[in-house]
Nucleic acid binder design. Structure first.
Lengths: 189, 189
DNA sequence: TATGACTAGTCATTTTCTTGAGTATAATGC
DNA sequence: GCATTATACTCAAGAAAATGACTAGTCATA
């Protein structure tokens, strides 16, 4: 019951099609959740049936028709109920961590490579998020924006995304360095 | 196909029962994955059927009998294959983030409370992980340990857990402060 | 002019995760 | 002495997520 709320949250800022949502939920512009297109289409259908969102058909000449969705009052009420409920704890769940856990017992080389790839992926996302944040706050500096900005929710979640990616990158680089160092000093078994 | 590898990884350090694994996977000592007891028991059964782990019955007088599992050669090979495969990207998936995303549009008060609760939960875990790390490295300082320590895998994943929790705590406190400040300056709608 | 990428979805299946309940004994705490 | 917690599991059901395949038109590019 969490994807539904993520969808409602994303839809709170305006009308979007399933396709548009899918992009946002995929690339990570939406730093607060992640889902595949199929999940989103399915969820939108369910939400519409329950009256939490309302869709309207938009006929397009040159592109396939699409359906734009917006949150209804019932949807907003549902979100409010959700916000008041106790949240489930969040966990890291990362395949790379599993690999690092055993890296010193099995082959280190591929893990080092993956750590470095991850680090540069994180770097790219850091750039992207930095740009996004700059655009969101406009001329104001951060403090100012956070005090007086109109819509700070997305900014705050992006901040978390940014901090997460920075931590992620730093850890990857550090661990890669540690494993490399050991690779050269210890004899490979 | 990731839980199986997490289980194999956890089992690599010795023989454990499903019950013991469940504790490790629950509390977060295992900072590289999370799972419920039922999943673990089921996974162990499957892994045994496939010959990736081997279990042996240990008869106990005073406690219920238990089954201890260890990784077989086939299991180790499977882990190696896994380590070499391209890893899936990791995502944050946190209900609290969804709430923060919409916090400025709906009720802020409960979200602030939840942020502060999260922060203190993170604080507690930080303590725990710090203690764990200290115990793992013994007398040596970190640099030293990472260069020459026997088994650094678990240490490295704990480091990530620690950094994650610190970032988590800092963000929660910062956002709670921002939302509070706005609550007092803006008129609540 | 074929190739692939982009828009805008749908359908079906499988895997994974979560929730809830139940069994049985033993040690510990009030 | 009675309640709680800890050990050690099992079974079933349901929700959520991931995987894969498919439709169908448009646009840019090589």
């Amino acid at each position: 019951m969490a994807l539904r709320h993520a969808v409602l949250a994303a839809l709170l800022d305006g009308e979007y099609s399933g396709y548009q949502l899918a992009k946002a939920f995929d690339v990570g512009v939406a730093n607060f959740w992640h889902a595949l297109p199929q999940q989103l289409y399915a969820e939108l259908t369910k939400l519409e049936k329950e009256g939490l969102v309302a869709g309207r058909q938009v006929v397009q000449e040159t592109r396939p028709n699409k359906r734009l969705f917006r949150v209804t009052d019932a949807g907003r009420a549902e979100l409010e109920k959700f916000a008041a409920a106790v949240p489930k704890p969040s966990f890291i769940r990362d395949e790379l961590l599993v690999k690092v856990q055993v890296a010193d017992r099995i082959g280190t080389a591929p893990v080092i490579e993956q750590l470095e790839e991850r680090a540069s992926a994180a770097e790219a996302k850091i750039e992207l998020l930095g740009e996004l944040l700059r655009r969101m706050r406009g001329d104001a500096d951060e403090e100012e924006f956070l005090r007086r900005g109109e819509r700070i929710g997305p900014y705050l979640t992006c901040l978390r995304g940014l901090a997460f990616e920075q931590e992620h990158r730093d850890w990857c680089l550090r661990i890669a360095a540690v494993l490399k160092e050991r690779q050269s000093t210890h004899a490979e078994r």
